[in-house]
Every structure is written in structure tokens, then in C-alpha cells.
Design a protein around this nucleic acid. Structure first.
Lengths: 331, 331
DNA sequence: ATGAAAGCGCTAACAG
DNA sequence: CTGTTAGCGCTTTCAT
């Protein structure tokens, strides 16, 4: 282990000067700088991050806490966040909770928060009130809506409007029996609820009656649940001629279920998803979906943390990122 | 900020005792422990990780460096690695390089390596020799084969054998014009080459001639490239009746290309992929693929790092994880 | 422009 | 079983 002082001795200067060179400060004579740099290279010096962090009181680390790294939506979001954060000098630490309340709490209140300067948190189970009341000083920004607009920074998309557009599109295509898949009654997270609201609103606008037997709950947002839910809908007395799924994964499962039932998409059943994951673009048929502006989501979240760390103590705000409906073959 | 000494004062004990409680050491009277714990809770004390890391000389962090977090294979591997590492008390920091040589080098030699105790590295561009000659003392384990068996720990699967099994399966199904998609001549990484080798070997075993016009190179492992490569193969004078793709993403792109050409899978063209990503299980038709044992890969990689950190200085070894051919509808 | 030295918060060797 | 204290490597105030 080569220390700063080793470099100083080797270069015949004080540690102060070496530190100045390492941190690229001004007020170092070009000649001195060159000599110090030569010593750094020769000795293979690398700053000890733990010592630097301790001294500076910052780590340069951000945590991105998501339910599942391996769901396409979150892995895509993570990739963008890491990329954008890197450009701003941050390192992102990705954690997964599986939506488990205990793990969400642990990451929220636990030791991890001492390791990072800020947290981008996508909660599933922990209710908004608890999020608002955390004692920790580490800035946090939430992804996704939470009922009651608590005093915590949020980055959201307009889920009600997006769902309304998606279902409105199915109405415009002449569908008259439109189901929804993805209701999640047990979650603290309000996203599914918002999409259900938009679904109902679009039906109402079209003069259609919302029917609870066409609002299918799911235990997860994965393909298997979409498949199961769609199969049940198709087995019902009045099967739907269109379905709006609250995630693309659910939609791809539903798509598969339609095929398994010997029917065709979109001829017999039109399918619309949500998230715009890559799989949907190459599915057979290609999936119509709502595409949230993920780059904007990542950028807004980082912006919030940067501002808070810079001392911004204005009241917490809700930042809304854009979205658009992408119509493809499945509808 | 509540410090260890604040808790000590509050509880009326020394910092040594508080530290003992925090780190769950023995030799603390139950009575004292309870009192200290009460103070910790009351004051909301959280250990300062930077200080702890500096003192201990370890950070408890591992880096998982992959080309793309958002490709299904790597995001799945990342999720497993994080989960398994967590059980062993590690925190995993995920980095992406986009396969870019400069970024791979930066993560390999740069300051990041001072932040973590060990590195799991899945290189694309940096050649094996360079990996072997890095000066850094941080233990590293590579994912994927590299020609020349350099003195660095590896975790691999038997790609030659796996590819041979996949293509052998197509032969057994009676296919006679079997193409390969996924050749990557420019990469330092030998994985694609190994799979090509297995492909050729299976053809040789079946008495078929390998044809370079049926070994399609790609610029990436994504769907779009699979689509493009398959379209070109189908447009050739003697289109194949089967294709072995070096990733499921390529295979799903190829699948789509077959459909776009007005043909059917597997009737006209059988398709086999590699990786066993979830999309493939719900594709239409479901994708036949080679499934690497990802849990074992993650476990072996962590095992290597744990051993190296514990002082194991035996020569670097190659650890081989299992795989199996999963036959589904596409073949 | 450079040097000397304090101290960030914690762990663990040493002492009792 | 508990207390005292040195020092991990770095940044930065103060002095020159």
C-alpha cells in the first residue's frame, strides 16, 4: 500500500502538495506538479477512498434501491441512472428489495444510508407516511406516486393520464370489452391504482361501464401472472376483446395466453402494455405500450439529490417526467 | 451526526463497550448491552462507514463489472450475485462498461479498485494478458473464457460442449442446413469463439461441412443484430433450415426475422438460443436454449474472492459451472 | 506556493 | 468484562 506520504517523500515535497496534485488544485508550480505526478506513476499510488471519504464526510456514492434488478424496466432504468450519474461524478450502488417490507425498511433506515450520500428509492411495500418520517439525514427521492402526497421528493409520470390514453386508444380501435390486468390491492405503492383509475376514466369517457370482473389482480408484475390472469379472463363467460396490462411483462404473458387459447392478437384480443421494454419491440406481434421517459426520470432524480446535497431546503416537490403511447401491432 | 462517543457518554460506558455492542462481540454483560442498545436506539446512532472502512482496511464492497446491466443475462446474473453476496455480508456495486476498452481499463486499474475489496469482472474488450498483468492487489475473478489461460481466476461454463449439444440437437431433429449467428471476430473475449467451435464440431460429427457463409458475424448480442443477420441468411441462395444463436436475444431477433419473412418456426426454420432468459420462455414459439447455471456462477465467483481475501495464494484456477440444454417449441 | 499538524469516527491492542 | 488510547490515510486550516 502506497500512501500519500510515501509519494511526498519520494518526490521531496510535503503531503499537502501531493494532495493538491491528486485533487487537481491550483497553486502548484508546473515543475513541482510534474515531479509529483512522476512519483505517483512510479509508485503506483491510488488514493485510499475510505480515508478520503472519512475526511470529506462524503462518499460520492448514491444508492438506487429497486424491487428487482432483473426486471427489464428496472434494469433499463438502472443502466441509464448509472450512466448519467457517472457523468456527474457519482458512483451508483444498486440494491434490490424484492418488494419485501423488511428489506425496504432496512435499506431505508439501516447502515447502508451511512455509506451513500443520497438514495433513489422505488418502494413497493413501505407506505408513504413511513417514508416521510424517516429520521435519516441522507437525501432521498422516491420513484412512483404515493397517495397523500407526503413531504418527500418524488419523480413520477402521469400514470392516470397514460393509462387513459392507452385505454382510449383501444376504444378508438373499436374494442368494446376492455379488461385490465395488474391490479395490486396490497401494495403501499399507488402506481397500479393510478393506472386502474385511468383505465376506468377512459371507459367512462367512452360511455362504458367498468366491471370488476374485468379488473384482474396479480401477485406480481411478471409474465406468469399475466398469463394466468389472461387465461382466466378468456375462460370467463364474456371474454374481453382487448386488455390493458399494467406492465409489458404482464402483457407478454397475456399475449402468450391468447395464443395458447388458440386465438389471435390483435384480431381476437388486442393487447396494450406499459413500460416499453425491449422484448415488446420484438415480440410477435410487436407490443403496443406506454413508454415512460426513463432518461428524464433518472435525470430528475439525480437533479433532486444534487440540489438537496447542495443545501436546497425548499419543500419537497413532485417532478413529473414525460411518457408517450407507442402503437404497434398488438392493437 | 451521532458518534460512538456520544452513545458512550449517554450510556455511561466507554467507547470500547459501545463498539463491542455495535459489532456484536462477546464479553459484554447482558445488562450493559441492554443499556447501550437503548442509548443507540434513543440517539439514533448509525456507524460511520467511512471511519469503519478506514480503520478495518476493508469496505465490505464488491464490484460486479459487466458490459451491460440492462441485458437480460447480466441483469439476472447481477440480481443473483447481489442476493447471494448479501447473505455473506457483502454489498455489491454494479458497474457497466458497454464493452468499451477505455472504461474496462478504468475500472480495472482506476480508483474504483480502492473502494472495493474484490472485483467480479466480465470483460469484452480487454485481452487476457492485460488482465493478468494488472498491478492492483484487489482480488479479481473473471467471468468467461479467455484464450491462453492466463494466471487469473476464472469462472466459466463449457461453451464448446454446450454449443455442441445445442447444434447436435438440431442435427437430431433432422436439420441439414444449420447456421450460426453471433460470431464476434473483434472481441478479446473468447466466448463467441468457443461457441463457434462447438457449432463446427457438432457439424463435423454429423458429417456436415462447415460453411463460412452460414457463420454470421454480429456487431452486438442484441435482438436487432439477430434480426438483421437472420434476414440476410434467409435472403441468401441457400437459406438455412435451422440456426444456432449465441445469445437468446439474438435468437429472439432471428425468430422475429423468420416471421417477418413469412416463414414459420420451427416448421421452416428451427431456432436455438443461449442464456435461457425469461423472454425466451414466453416467446411465441417458446425458445429452445442453453441454460447456464447462473447461481453456481455467482457462487463460484464469490467463493474465489472469499478465498483470495482469506489469504489463499495458490495458483489461479478455472472454475467450471454447469449448463443444460432446454428444449422448447422453437426446435 | 509549500509545509506542519490537527482531526474526521472508528477499531483493537493494551491495560486493568 | 470494561476503560484508555494510538492511529488508519487523507484533507485542510494555519502558518510561512
Amino acid at each position: 500500500m502506497v500512501r500519500l506520504s510515501d509519494v511526498a517523500v519520494h518526490a521531496g515535497v510535503s503531503v499537502r502538495t501531493v494532495s493538491n496534485v491528486v485533487n487537481d488544485f491550483r497553486h502548484v508550480a508546473p515543475h513541482t506538479r510534474a515531479r509529483v505526478q512522476a512519483s505517483i506513476d512510479e509508485l503506483g499510488y491510488r488514493p485510499n477512498m475510505a480515508a478520503r471519504n472519512l475526511r470529506r464526510g462524503r462518499t460520492g456514492l448514491l444508492a438506487l434501491v429497486v424491487p428487482e434488478i432483473d426486471s427489464p424496466y428496472f434494469s433499463d432504468l438502472a443502466a441509464r441512472t448509472v450512466r448519467i450519474a457517472e457523468d456527474e461524478g457519482w458512483t451508483v450502488l444498486i440494491d434490490q428489495t424484492d418488494g419485501d417490507p423488511a428489506r425496504e425498511r432496512r435499506l431505508l433506515h439501516g447502515e447502508r444510508s451511512q455509506l451513500v450520500d443520497g438514495v433513489i428509492f422505488s418502494p413497493w411495500s413501505v407506505p408513504a407516511q413511513e417514508l416521510a418520517s424517516r429520521s435519516d439525514a441522507t437525501p432521498i427521492v422516491l420513484l412512483g406516486e404515493h397517495d397523500g402526497a407526503p413531504p418527500v421528493d418524488h419523480v413520477v409520470i402521469d400514470n392516470v393520464r397514460a393509462a387513459e390514453e392507452a385505454v382510449g386508444h383501444l376504444v378508438a380501435r373499436g374494442r368494446t370489452a376492455i379488461a385490465a390486468i395488474g391490479v395490486r390491492p396490497t401494495l403501499g405503492n399507488a402506481t397500479a391504482h393510478q393506472r386502474l383509475l385511468g383505465h376506468r376514466r377512459a371507459l367512462a369517457t367512452a360511455g362504458m361501464e367498468p366491471r370488476s370482473d374485468r379488473e384482474a389482480p396479480v401477485g406480481s408484475l411478471h409474465r406468469a401472472e399475466g398469463h394466468r390472469a389472461m387465461t382466466e379472463l378468456l375462460d370467463s363467460l364474456e371474454p374481453p376483446d382487448a386488455v390493458f396490462c399494467f406492465s409489458d411483462q404482464l402483457a407478454l404473458g397475456a399475449l402468450r395466453a391468447v395464443v395458447d387459447a388458440g386465438l389471435r392478437v390483435p384480431r381476437d384480443v388486442a393487447v396494450v402494455g406499459f413500460d416499453d421494454i425491449e422484448d415488446g419491440r420484438y415480440a410477435v406481434p410487436r407490443l403496443t405500450t406506454v413508454s415512460p421517459d426513463r432518461d428524464q426520470i433518472a435525470r430528475l432524480a439525480l437533479q433532486v439529490l444534487r440540489d438537496r446535497l447542495a443545501g436546497d431546503d425548499t419543500p419537497a416537490r413532485v417532478h413529473t417526467a414525460g411518457h408517450r403511447l407507442v402503437v404497434r401491432e398488438s392493437s
